[in-house]
């Protein structure tokens, strides 16, 4: 039976009576949008300016590496230039009295900058090669803290041996571009590499540096540990390979983990990071570092005749490294008998 029921007409869907009133956005809403757009513009400008700055730095680098052209700091003037005899003598022949005075200043709280004597005694002993204790350094030429800390390291090592050569260097341009020392003439414009050389000799210690290399015109950059190991293995030098493997072996211990550069081992004492923050006569409050405005000559002049907080901090930082190493040497080196060093060892 067919349905005779007819469908009731669908009630007309009453359209919504919409009275639209277009409310223009308020000034505040527009300001909020403008702020957001501004943020995008700034970000785009930042990327553009970084690219442009990079290109400009490459031009400056090309100019500054021309030995006949003297480019002013803060470009890379004189990079990889060896220190002359006078400059080298500032490091090698620094007076023991400076180390003593700086050590006493640290002990009586007269050092304005941060000096960080925080080291860990290696649980399984030190790295010994050729019958000598070792100083092992893992850093990067692009690292600003490595840059400021190499001065103190060089001073400390000078108490146990002698540098026949040191080189003028800089930390990365985008990482404050501070003047520093290189242990060896560095490949500062290769994409990635590792420098393991130095011109240091000592009857007390081996100095084994591992310096990660990256373009100095960029920012801070570092290779993974495994990549560094590959570079070290390529040297074919058994002492260097063993020393780097020693570092890798320490990564199983939470107290000796590698968490940035510089990473240094002084005998049985491992310093995870710089042992001082020395960028001028006081700790910087902002991103501007006084050291980045100094030249190598400025730094060496201050180290030659220390009379400001910057220089005394460098000597105090060197004292920390010396104290850490002296323990491993059973105080056989003459510098270990300095009263300040003896007191620092006890701390």
């Amino acid at each position: 039976m067919a349905s005779t029921r007819s469908k009731s007409p669908r009630p007309a869907t009453r359209p919504l009576r919409q009275e639209s009133r277009h409310n223009p956005p308020s000034a505040i809403a527009i300001a909020a949008l403008i702020l957001s757009i501004f943020a995008i513009v700034i970000a785009l400008y930042a990327v553009y300016s970084s690219i442009a700055y990079e290109q400009l730095n490459m031009q400056k680098l090309a100019a500054s590496t021309n030995t006949s052209v003297s480019a002013p700091h803060p470009t890379l003037a004189g990079i990889d230039t060896p220190l002359n005899n006078t400059e080298l003598s500032t490091i090698n022949n620094a007076s023991d009295s400076y180390f003593e005075i700086a050590g006493q200043m640290y002990l009586n709280g007269s050092i304005a900058n941060q000096v960080l004597p925080n080291y860990v005694t290696l649980p399984n002993g030190s790295f010994v090669a050729n019958g000598k204790q070792s100083v092992i350094y893992l850093g990067s030429i692009t690292c600003v803290f490595c840059g400021e800390n190499r001065w103190a390291m060089a001073l400390a090592l000078s108490r146990f041996g002698n540098f026949s050569k040191l080189y003028k260097g800089y930390s990365a341009i985008h990482d404050s571009d501070v003047p520093t020392l290189y242990w060896n003439a560095s490949n500062y414009n290769i994409s990635a590499g590792m420098d393991t050389g130095s011109f240091y000799s000592s009857k007390y210690v081996n100095f084994i540096p591992f310096e990660d290399e990256a373009p100095i015109t960029g920012g801070f950059s570092i290779q993974p540990l495994q990549t560094m190991q590959g570079f070290v293995n390529q040297t074919g030098n058994s002492t260097k390979i063993s020393a780097f493997n020693f570092i890798l072996g320490l990564q199983n211990n939470a107290n000796t983990l590698f968490q940035g550069t510089p990473y240094t081992i002084w005998g049985n004492a491992m310093f995870a990071g710089a042992d001082a923050v020395d960028f001028g006569n006081s700790t910087p409050t902002g991103a501007t570092l006084a050291l980045s405005s100094m030249t190598h000559a400025d730094v060496l002049n201050q180290l030659r005749t220390p009379n400001d907080q910057f220089a005394w901090t460098e000597y105090a930082a060197a004292d920390m490294y010396i104290a850490g190493l002296c323990k491993s040497l059973n105080n056989t080196a003459p510098v270990c008998s300095l009263p300040a060093i003896v007191m620092l060892e006890k701390k």
Binding site: A39, I40, I42, A43, Y45, A46, S49, S50, Q114, L116, V144, F145, H174, D175, S176, G219, F220, G273, A274, V277, F279, T283, P284, T285, G286, A287, L289
Partner: peptide, 15 residues
């Protein structure tokens, strides 16, 4: 180490 040392442009941080 207590230093406000940035390696990216400050205005990106503001953004």
């Amino acid at each position: 180490y207590g230093i406000f040392l940035i390696t990216v442009p400050l205005y990106l941080i503001y953004a």
